Simulated scan of single mutants.
Amino acid sequence: MKVAMLANHYPHAAHRDAFVERVHRVAEEFLRGPGCLSAECWLTGDAVVSFVRWESEEAFVTAFTALRTEELDIDHDERESRPREIVKLVEPPAGA
């Protein structure tokens, strides 16, 4: 069963370009991991949107464990104007 994550990040305007770079760095790290099918960065209005897909729940969990060991900058901080909105998506079984 495939798993995906859709995250809307809301950086302050002064940090938008740097935040896009930040999301791209995290996406590159996700793509290096086993089971990552895609990792993308999109823009909409005031949000920087990340969308990542994995082949399984196990790959999803492994990806976040690996990010912590890489010490990447992934935590919410004062560069963001409001909390992130994160949605985890799960592929429905065939025929559902």
Score class of each variant (00 low, 15 high):
residue 55 E to F: 01
residue 52 V to E: 07
residue 18 A to Y: 03
residue 6 L to K: 08
residue 26 V to T: 15
residue 84 R to M: 09
residue 56 S to R: 07
residue 17 D to G: 06
residue 18 A to E: 13
residue 18 A to V: 02
residue 91 E to P: 05
residue 21 E to K: 15
residue 80 E to R: 02
residue 3 V to T: 13
residue 59 A to Y: 04
residue 18 A to Q: 13
residue 55 E to N: 14
residue 74 I to P: 01
residue 50 S to H: 09
residue 40 E to M: 10
residue 25 R to P: 02
residue 61 V to T: 08
residue 28 E to L: 08
residue 16 R to F: 12
residue 51 F to S: 04
residue 61 V to R: 15
residue 46 D to K: 13
residue 54 W to L: 04
residue 65 T to M: 01
residue 3 V to Y: 07
residue 93 P to A: 13
residue 55 E to S: 13
residue 92 P to L: 13
residue 13 A to P: 11
residue 31 L to M: 15
residue 61 V to S: 02
residue 76 H to K: 06
residue 25 R to E: 10
residue 94 A to K: 12
residue 27 A to N: 15
residue 33 G to F: 05
residue 78 E to D: 13
residue 64 F to R: 15
residue 96 A to K: 08
residue 26 V to Y: 00
residue 62 T to G: 01
residue 39 A to T: 10
residue 26 V to S: 09
residue 4 A to C: 11
residue 4 A to P: 03
residue 33 G to C: 10
residue 57 E to G: 11
residue 9 H to P: 00
residue 37 L to S: 08
residue 83 P to N: 08
residue 27 A to R: 13
residue 87 V to N: 04
residue 1 M to Q: 11
residue 88 K to W: 02
residue 28 E to S: 11
residue 54 W to D: 01
residue 34 P to N: 12
residue 7 A to T: 15
residue 13 A to M: 08
residue 66 A to V: 04
residue 8 N to S: 11
residue 74 I to Q: 03
residue 92 P to G: 10
residue 87 V to A: 09
residue 75 D to S: 12
residue 56 S to F: 04
residue 9 H to K: 09
residue 11 P to E: 08
residue 7 A to P: 05
residue 95 G to C: 06
residue 38 S to M: 10
residue 96 A to P: 00
residue 44 T to M: 05
residue 76 H to E: 12
residue 70 E to I: 01
residue 87 V to E: 04
residue 37 L to I: 10
residue 84 R to E: 06
residue 57 E to N: 09
residue 69 T to V: 07
residue 41 C to N: 10
residue 59 A to P: 06
residue 3 V to D: 01
residue 54 W to Q: 06
residue 32 R to W: 02
residue 91 E to N: 05
residue 63 A to N: 12
residue 65 T to A: 07
residue 66 A to Y: 02
residue 63 A to M: 05
residue 73 D to E: 13
residue 56 S to D: 10
residue 15 H to P: 00
residue 9 H to D: 07
residue 25 R to W: 03
residue 18 A to G: 15
residue 64 F to E: 05
residue 60 F to C: 05
residue 25 R to F: 00
residue 76 H to R: 11
residue 39 A to I: 08
residue 7 A to N: 14
residue 20 V to K: 10
residue 42 W to M: 14
residue 69 T to F: 04
residue 77 D to P: 05
residue 74 I to K: 03
residue 48 V to W: 04
residue 58 E to H: 09
residue 34 P to W: 09
residue 19 F to S: 10
residue 88 K to N: 02
residue 53 R to E: 14
residue 90 V to C: 07
residue 45 G to P: 12
residue 65 T to Y: 02
residue 85 E to Y: 01
residue 76 H to G: 03
residue 37 L to V: 09
residue 45 G to M: 09
residue 54 W to F: 15
residue 83 P to T: 07
residue 27 A to C: 14
residue 61 V to C: 02
residue 10 Y to I: 07
residue 88 K to Y: 04
residue 20 V to D: 06
residue 9 H to Y: 11
residue 22 R to F: 02
residue 68 R to C: 00
residue 58 E to K: 12
residue 24 H to Y: 03
residue 5 M to Q: 14
residue 19 F to L: 03
residue 19 F to R: 01
residue 81 S to Q: 14
residue 66 A to H: 07
residue 83 P to F: 03
residue 14 A to D: 11
residue 94 A to N: 07
residue 23 V to P: 03
residue 72 L to S: 05
residue 82 R to P: 00
